[in-house]
Computed example of a mutant assay.
Amino acid sequence: MPQRSKDRPFERSSRRDELPADWDERRAAVFARDGDICHVCFLPGANQVDHLVPGNDHRLENLAPIHGWDTPQRCHAFKTSREGNAAKPPLRRPPERHPGIA
C-alpha cells in the first residue's frame, strides 16, 4: 500500500468531494471575517478552514481558521486526531477466566 505524503495527508481521502461547490467562497469569507487567527491556539498564521463541530455542516457559523498540517503548529492535525480518537469505541478487555476454574 502506498504511503501518504506528509505534505498531503488526505490525498486519497474523499473528504474534499463532500465540500459544497462554493467552498472557495466560504473559505474566503471565513478569512475575511476572522483573519488568520487560529481558533485553537489563537496565534496568527492559520492557513486552513476547520469545522468547529465535526461533520458536514458548512454554514459560516461552523467554520473558523486553523493552522494546517504544513505549519509548525499543526493545530488541524492535532484536533482531527483528538476527534478521531474520541469517536473510537472504548477498547474492551476480553473477560477473564474465573481463578477457581482450571
Results as ranks from 00 to 15, higher is better:
Arg12Gln: 11
Arg12Ile: 05
Arg12Trp: 15
Arg12His: 14
Ser13Asn: 06
Ser13Tyr: 04
Ser13Trp: 05
Ser14Glu: 13
Ser14Ala: 14
Ser14Phe: 08
Arg15Ile: 00
Arg15Val: 00
Arg16Phe: 07
Asp17Lys: 13
Asp17Gln: 14
Glu18Gly: 02
Glu18Val: 00
Glu18Asp: 09
Glu18His: 14
Glu18Met: 07
Glu18Asn: 12
Leu19Asn: 09
Leu19Arg: 15
Leu19Pro: 02
Leu19Lys: 11
Pro20Val: 10
Pro20Tyr: 09
Pro20Trp: 11
Pro20Arg: 11
Ala21Arg: 14
Ala21Glu: 14
Ala21Leu: 12
Ala21Pro: 01
Ala21Met: 06
Asp22Glu: 09
Asp22Leu: 04
Trp23Arg: 05
Trp23Gln: 08
Trp23Cys: 12
Trp23Asn: 09
Trp23Asp: 05
Asp24Trp: 01
Asp24Lys: 11
Asp24Met: 04
Glu25Gly: 13
Glu25Asn: 13
Glu25Ile: 03
Glu25Ala: 15
Arg26Cys: 09
Arg27Glu: 11
Arg27Ser: 15
Arg27Leu: 09
Arg27Thr: 09
Ala28Asp: 14
Ala28Trp: 01
Ala28Gly: 06
Ala28Met: 02
Ala28Lys: 12
Ala28Leu: 10
Ala29Glu: 14
Ala29Trp: 01
Ala29His: 03
Val30Asn: 09
Phe31Pro: 03
Phe31Arg: 02
Phe31Glu: 06
Ala32Tyr: 05
Ala32Asp: 15
Arg33Met: 02
Arg33Asp: 07
Arg33Leu: 06
Asp34Gln: 09
Asp34Ser: 10
Asp34Thr: 00
Asp34Val: 00
Asp34Asn: 08
Gly35Pro: 10
Gly35Leu: 13
Gly35Lys: 08
Gly35Ile: 08
Asp36Ile: 01
Asp36Pro: 03
Asp36Ala: 14
Asp36Met: 11
Asp36Val: 02
Ile37Tyr: 04
Ile37Lys: 02
Ile37Thr: 02
Ile37Phe: 10
Cys38Tyr: 04
Cys38Gly: 05
Cys38Glu: 11
Cys38Trp: 02
His39Arg: 07
His39Val: 02
His39Ile: 02
His39Phe: 07
His39Cys: 13
Val40Pro: 04
Val40Phe: 12
Cys41Asp: 08
Cys41His: 12
Cys41Tyr: 12
Phe42Asn: 13
Phe42Glu: 14
Phe42Asp: 14
Leu43Glu: 15
Pro44Glu: 09
Pro44His: 06
Pro44Gly: 10
Gly45Phe: 03
Gly45Arg: 01
Gly45Ser: 09
Ala46Gln: 06
Ala46Lys: 07
Asn47Glu: 11
Asn47Thr: 07
Asn47Met: 03
Gln48Lys: 07
Gln48Ser: 13
Val49Phe: 02
Val49Ile: 10
Asp50Tyr: 01
Asp50Leu: 00
His51Ala: 11
His51Ile: 00
His51Phe: 00
His51Tyr: 01
His51Asp: 09
Leu52Arg: 15
Leu52Asn: 07
Leu52Lys: 15
Leu52Ile: 15
Val53Glu: 14
Val53Gln: 15
Pro54Asp: 13
Pro54Glu: 12
Pro54Asn: 05
Asn56His: 14
Asn56Thr: 10
Asn56Ser: 13
Asn56Asp: 15
Asp57Leu: 04
Asp57Gln: 08
Asp57Met: 08
